[in-house]
Design a protein around this nucleic acid. Structure first.
Lengths: 147, 147
DNA sequence: CTTGACCCTATAGTTACTATAGGGTCTAGG
DNA sequence: CCTAGACCCTATAGTAACTATAGGGTCAAG
């Protein structure tokens, strides 16, 4: 926190809290994103220092890393919220988690298929444009133009 | 326009202008999207009827279809604007069009690669969750949690 | 005349951040 | 002690490409 030891690049002192910058670095994200997650309700509001700085604990770091991991895997914030909820209920059956992950995987696979088709169309369009031409007889422009 | 012939599903009358709804249907988009494109400067402002309705010509339809085709292929509106500009200059060399299309294809291919890696990660994570378990020992939650 | 489909403008919302503005706090170094 | 730079804070607007909502006007068939 507002007591950075020389040579310490994380700013974490034994037993002391994390500043938002430290938390951001530890979770490989940015302070502005953390504030956003707090506003969205994904991260609990942390205690403050006397100078009104946020003071985070390892619990926050753990939770933020979970959120970032989910985001990196493409889950929406709504889905992340669901996963957080599910993960906090230890006695709960985990088929819901299973279902969420499977649905998301399917959505990603569909997106891949869409993009693959799109790429093929683009290749076809580009393939028809060879050498130096003018716009007047540009095959790409032609392909983009309606009948 | 405000004179729909019975049985005519497009509302287009010989020699008459198109309403925004007719234009939207003909280009397989929505009136609200067309107004948006007009605001963004992609579509020229059309003349109006005495009742302040927009009155579109076939030229507008042609241009809108071009825009939609580009959008369907994933070009950003900025890129579409560039392509429109390029396409209107008939004597221009078309290497710029070529370059735009190639850059876009590459971006799509990169996105496919990203998503493919992501899908594989999701498969690995899901694969580790078999049968009915509780959250306490859910392998998916475990995989989402930091060390 | 009524009603439902369509038109109009203005503005805010969606998603997940991100930029900007304006001001306070901390600390190392001179 | 002062300064400067790095960091903190809140509030708000912006990004991309639409889309929803609110409130009001026009058209035409029944």
């Amino acid at each position: 926190m507002p007591t950075r030891a020389a040579g310490s690049d994380s700013g974490i002192q034994p037993g002391s809290a994390l500043s938002i910058g430290d938390l951001a670095n530890a979770a490989e994200t940015k302070p502005v994103t953390i504030r956003y997650y707090e506003r969205m309700g994904l991260l609990p509001v942390p205690p403050r220092t006397s100078s009104n700085y946020r003071a985070y604990s390892e619990v926050h770091l753990h939770r933020l890393r979970f959120i970032r991991r989910c985001r990196d895997l493409g889950f929406t914030l709504d889905q992340v919220e669901d996963l957080l909820q599910l993960s906090s209920d230890e006695h709960r059956d985990c088929t819901e988690v299973d279902r969420l992950a499977a649905a998301h995987l399917q959505a990603v696979e569909i997106k891949i298929a869409d993009l693959t088709r799109l790429a093929e169309q683009l290749r076809q369009i580009s393939r028809s444009c060879r050498g130096r031409r003018t716009i007047a007889n540009c095959r790409i422009i032609e392909a983009l133009s309606p009948l």
